[in-house]
Each structure stands twice: as structure tokens, then as C-alpha cells.
């Protein structure tokens, strides 16, 4: 990832794999326990509505299905960006990164809309255990997507200034891993939170 000749030479690694990639996978392994905790909290509390609406009353499955589909497809565009970067195709990389970021932004926009709609229907963060745990879980996920969008846009900006084609290929791959991870977390949330009724 470091873009100087100095950093590249003598890249001695006992396993032959890159430090950054190994570090990223370790981080994702760790994130499993973070989201696991949040999902478990939601699962335990989803039926506990002492006040305000129940999940069935607020969830809009068709709407969430569309935004889930958008996020799922952003994984395809992300992998196309990674693939283009590996081929040193900077134009293609940037194009797919921007598309990925736009799809991600659509998802986050959908989430903002959803939160607003739920709030108007009487489900606040402090309304019930269901409200607290729902907003915490999906909010954490939304923050992860937002961080991903910022990284994607920053990457496009850096890529445009780079003179060596494909020099950021590993960075693209790392952000790709992060992006896909955020997507698979949503795959689980979509089923456990939205599709399976209490």
C-alpha cells in the first residue's frame, strides 16, 4: 500500500501473504463478535414492546427488500472494481468504485427514510427495548456502510492523482473486503430482523 520503492523492497513475509490483508481478515473476524453481540441483543429484545409499535406494525418489507437488493448488488460492483484494479485499469476501477458508493449511499438514504418513517409511527430510540435494540443494531450497520462510502470516495480521489496504474490495487481489495463484510452482515440482519417475525 505504501507507494514508494523503499517500502516495497525486501518485502519479507514468513507466510508469503501481505500484512495488510492478513490484518484486514483478522479485523473482520473480530467484527463478527461485535455484530454477533448486537444481533443477539436485538434477538433477545425484539419481542419486548412495553410501549409503542411492534416490529410487525412498523416494518415495510417491500421497501427494505429493495434497499437490501441495492446493497447486495453493490457487492457485485465492488468486486468488479477490485477486478479492474487487478488489471491495472484505473478508469474501470474508478467507475465501479463510484457506482458502489452510489449504491451504498442509496442504501443509507433508504435507512434514513426508514428511520424517519418508524419514528413518525411512534418508534423512538427510547420507546421500548425493541426500539433501542433495533436502532442500535441497524445504526451500527449504517455507520459501517457510511464509513465504507467515505473510504470509497477517498480512494477514487487518491486514484485520480496516482500516476502509476493499478498502484492502489491492494487498497481497493482491502476496502472491497470491508464492503463485502458489511454486505454479509446485512444478509443476516435482513433475514433475522426483518423476515422472521417475532
Amino acid at each position: 500500500m505504501a507507494d514508494t520503492a523503499v517500502a516495497h523492497e525486501g518485502h519479507t513475509s514468513s507466510t508469503g501473504i501481505s500484512n495488510v490483508k492478513l490484518g484486514m481478515w483478522l479485523f473482520l473476524g473480530s467484527e463478527c463478535l461485535l455484530f454477533g453481540g448486537l444481533i443477539s441483543t436485538y434477538m433477545l429484545y425484539r419481542g419486548r414492546v412495553s410501549n409503542g409499535p411492534t416490529p410487525e406494525q412498523v416494518y415495510d418489507i417491500p421497501f427494505t427488500s429493495v434497499s437490501s437488493f441495492v446493497l447486495l448488488m453493490s457487492s457485485l460492483t465492488m468486486v468488479l472494481a477490485v477486478s479492474a484494479a487487478a488489471k491495472k485499469d484505473d478508469r474501470g476501477t474508478n467507475l465501479w468504485l463510484v457506482v458502489t458508493a452510489l449504491l451504498g449511499a442509496t442504501f443509507v438514504g433508504g435507512q434514513v427514510y426508514e428511520f424517519t418513517a418508524f419514528y413518525n409511527e411512534g418508534l423512538g430510540f427510547t420507546t421500548s427495548l425493541f426500539g433501542s435494540s433495533f436502532y442500535t443494531l441497524t445504526g451500527f450497520h449504517g455507520v459501517h456502510v457510511t464509513v465504507g462510502i467515505i473510504m470509497l470516495m477517498a480512494l477514487v480521489a487518491i486514484n485520480k492523482r496516482s500516476r502509476v496504474p493499478g498502484s492502489k490495487a491492494e487498497t481497493v481489495e482491502m476496502i472491497g473486503l470491508y464492503w463485502h463484510f458489511v454486505d454479509i452482515v446485512w444478509i443476516i440482519i435482513f433475514t433475522l430482523v426483518y423476515l422472521i417475525p417475532v
Binding site: L44, Y45, F125, S128, G131, S132
Partner: peptide, 17 residues
């Protein structure tokens, strides 16, 4: 979140465990 933003996570009155 419970202490600063009034979430219900450990609020037994709201049914918390």
C-alpha cells in the same frame, strides 16, 4: 447508550433482562 441517550437496554421496568 443507556446512560447518555436513555436507551432501555437494562431498564427492568421496560422488560429488560
Amino acid at each position: 447508550f443507556q446512560r447518555s441517550f436513555d436507551a432501555k437496554f437494562f431498564d427492568v421496568a421496560a422488560g429488560a433482562d
